Amino acid sequence: MGWAGTALPGLDAATRARLDALPAQDLPRGTRLFAPGDRARGFAIVLAGRVEVHLTGPSGREILLYAVEPGESCVQTTLGLLGDAPYTAEATAATDIRVVSVPAALFHALMDGSSSFRAFVFRAFAARMADMTALLERVAFARVEARLAAALLELAADDTVRITQAELAARIGTAREVVSRRLEAMVRQGLVETDRGRIRLSNRAALLRLAAGV
């Protein structure tokens, strides 16, 4: 079975064959896939790894809009192809990635002629919009401390998070200086311990309560 049958289950045989004929690319971590002002030239399907999409404000502050992992889609690309709109955000490979790009002409042909491909695109688009709505709710209504605690819990492996303060700030939608102050407060409260590029969770139960707004 080719990559299409694995990555996009439920496709009809004709669509699967057309997609399987497309080559996959292996790209290193740090590769920029698109930037603000670019036009979408194809529909990227991530087979392995993680792509992160950031929005940068006039002040230079970044926010992580969403990540694209295997089986997920990029809402910026979908909007660009369907609405002929330029990108407003930047996408970068957060890890080494394996990706297939469906050329724009083939994307539109499949959207017109393949109900299974069209269903995949719209299901993935709906899921991504739900994620972005949840992000908006967190940024608008959740306290910074709660967002920071939730991010640390999500990222922790063996109670250790390896991330910079700038990356944490982008993930939770605030400034690096704010993250620095909140982490210092968490250290004083005995919730975490910090080292260069590393945060160790000292009191997971308290962090869970903080993330829940308790």
Rank of each mutant, 00 (worst) to 15 (best):
T15F: 03
W3E: 04
L152P: 05
E184L: 07
T160Q: 15
A149Y: 02
L201I: 13
A150S: 13
G5Q: 01
M132C: 14
A119M: 13
I45P: 04
S115T: 13
L110E: 11
V100S: 01
A212V: 03
A24S: 15
S116N: 08
S73E: 12
A7G: 04
P9A: 06
Y87E: 02
T15E: 10
A156V: 02
E154N: 12
R39D: 11
G197L: 07
T160I: 10
G37K: 15
A175V: 09
D84N: 15
P9G: 11
V161G: 00
A94G: 08
D20I: 04
R29F: 03
N203P: 08
A169I: 01
E69Y: 10
L8C: 03
E177Q: 14
V53A: 05
V144K: 12
R147F: 02
R50N: 08
S116W: 10
A13G: 11
A4S: 04
R123G: 06
H54T: 07
A85M: 14
A40I: 10
A156L: 03
L210C: 05
S73I: 12
A4L: 02
A89Q: 01
P103R: 02
T92F: 12
A142G: 03
V139I: 12
R50A: 09
A151L: 11
A89D: 09
M129I: 05
A169C: 04
T92P: 03
A206F: 06
V187Y: 09
A48H: 11
L183N: 02
T194N: 06
A175K: 13
L33S: 00
V161K: 01
F43K: 02
P23I: 01
L8A: 04
L19V: 08
S101E: 14
D38W: 13
R41C: 08
R32K: 11
A124C: 07
T15R: 15
F107R: 01
S59K: 13
V178Q: 06
V99D: 05
A175L: 06
A140N: 05
A13K: 11
G197V: 02
D112L: 13
P86S: 09
R162E: 15
R29N: 10
W3I: 06
C74D: 14
G83V: 11
T133K: 15
V144R: 13
V75K: 06
T31Y: 12
F34W: 09
F117G: 04
F107G: 00
